[in-house]
Design a protein around this nucleic acid. Structure first.
Lengths: 255, 255
DNA sequence: CGTCGTGTTGAACGAAATCAACCATCGTGG
DNA sequence: CCACGATGGTTGATTTCGTTCAACACGACG
């Protein structure tokens, strides 16, 4: 397959320059997780990296979108809006998550980089061909989609039934679970994490206003559930306590 | 493949008795939609039908679940609950929808029949084998899962950002779209539909209390947006008006 | 130094929850 | 046959949680 240079000026490197998939930090969790050597070679031939800065709009809902991608690094949000401007975040893409829907030519949601990030992109058409030919890829995409559906439903429970305080606590728990934690949960140890979102973005995630988010974070701080250094860095002295504040969902019952 | 009688006493018929897939009302929309003659023969050999009465619990979250199924007829709900009893519906299964997650041995959600219903079941293990061997099946499941994810995200927008009145209107729109309408939307024509849920179940769906649901339905009636005959039968004289009341989502913008 | 983006906090307000009474329908058993 | 309770639904009064409106704090940056 002949490789052509994609059209994102200044964001593209030719295959020879590209970091190899072997050293990719998300190699074993991303869409390519089940791929074997020759699958990978084929993917490697068509992939290209793209850097996005915080705040940059990656795709606009309804607009054509000619690529799909894995998040290598950084965080992006999927949002939906009503005509009057009310907006709700409907997806949070963390490293290894997949962006785009094969078989659909327009973006289903508005995708925005929440932090500076690195994407591993594939042009949509060739990717769809590979999907059709490679059951391992299809199966992996199915697995990931089912996981996302579970996550979305957990989120629905949060949006529909949790209090503002529980929402904030749940959000921190989700971040910790997804490994956004700075020091990975040493048991009984204080846990640190860095919020990848502004207060406003958190509000859009949680179905609140930014004022309520701010107030509830302050309340959790006052009550000793969390500590803050700067606006973005959170310290959780007692993870069990945080979990209790989160209202308790499916996973807390399991784990 | 040898067919054994499943263990649901009184709910099982042997393959010879079973309605053939050819005449199945959901044949072209369900998991089997892309199947060809020989795929279908294999599916047909292992399927069995199960009737459920309204209110019956089909699966309990966390309990083992040894089958997957297509909804042939009727409506079921997926719900999640917090320890203190707050519950949120996270999925509504209408005819042709798929129930169960291949690769997972326990129910992820509590599944309850909202109306009397008919399921077309497959035992999980054999179904998983067929999935692994049959790309058409996998591809169809992927499509359906992606659609459900889109629906879940639409739902998140509703839960997070819509008012009670908009939520009720949106619910009616969803029902109409999914073809739950009695008389299929003749343009400019009055549309009738039958609510498949109690007020309480609607509340769980919409993240409201049953009192609020009742009040908002009354309000929509007073304002002439809908008419009621009995508790369950709704008449929509002006669909565009209803759509306007729903707050306007992605699809209303498209369509 | 002023301004912009981001965040915090206070006061007043309002939409939905809560608490409570009541109504209609339906099946059941005396 | 009717009294009975159960289930599902409506409506009213009151409360509460989160929103809205508004002022202010802080750091970055031209």
């Amino acid at each position: 397959m002949q490789v052509k240079a994609p059209i994102f000026a200044g964001q593209v490197r030719y295959p020879d320059d590209l970091p190899s998939c072997d050293q990719c930090p998300i190699r074993d969790r991303a869409i390519c997780a089940h791929c074997e050597a020759d699958d990978l070679t084929r993917l490697e031939a068509t992939k290209y990296y793209r850097r996005c800065e915080a705040g940059q709009v990656i795709a606009l809902m309804g607009e054509p979108m000619d690529f799909v991608a894995s998040v290598v690094d950084g965080v992006a949000s999927l949002t939906q809006t009503l005509e009057d401007g009310r907006t709700q975040m409907v997806g949070l893409l963390l490293p290894s998550d997949f962006l785009g829907r094969p078989g659909r030519d327009c973006a289903g949601y508005t995708v925005t980089a929440a932090t500076s990030m690195q994407l591993c992109c594939f042009r949509r058409k060739p990717f769809e061909v590979m999907l059709a030919c490679n059951p391992r890829l299809t199966t992996r995409l199915l697995e990931m989609t089912l996981d996302e559906l579970d996550a979305a439903r957990e989120w629905m429970l949060l949006l529909g039934r949790k209090t503002a305080r529980e929402k904030i606590a749940s959000f921190l728990v989700i971040l910790a679970r997804r490994g956004a934690a700075v020091n990975f949960a040493r048991p009984g140890q204080s846990l640190s994490l860095s919020l990848p979102l502004t207060r406003e973005a958190m509000a859009d995630y949680l179905g609140l206003t930014l004022e309520t988010v701010s107030r509830q974070i302050s309340a959790l701080r006052r009550d000793g559930v969390i500590r803050l250094s700067g606006n973005r860095d959170v310290d959780v002295p007692d993870y069990a306590r945080l979990l209790a504040e989160s209202g308790g969902d499916r996973d807390s019952a399991r784990a």
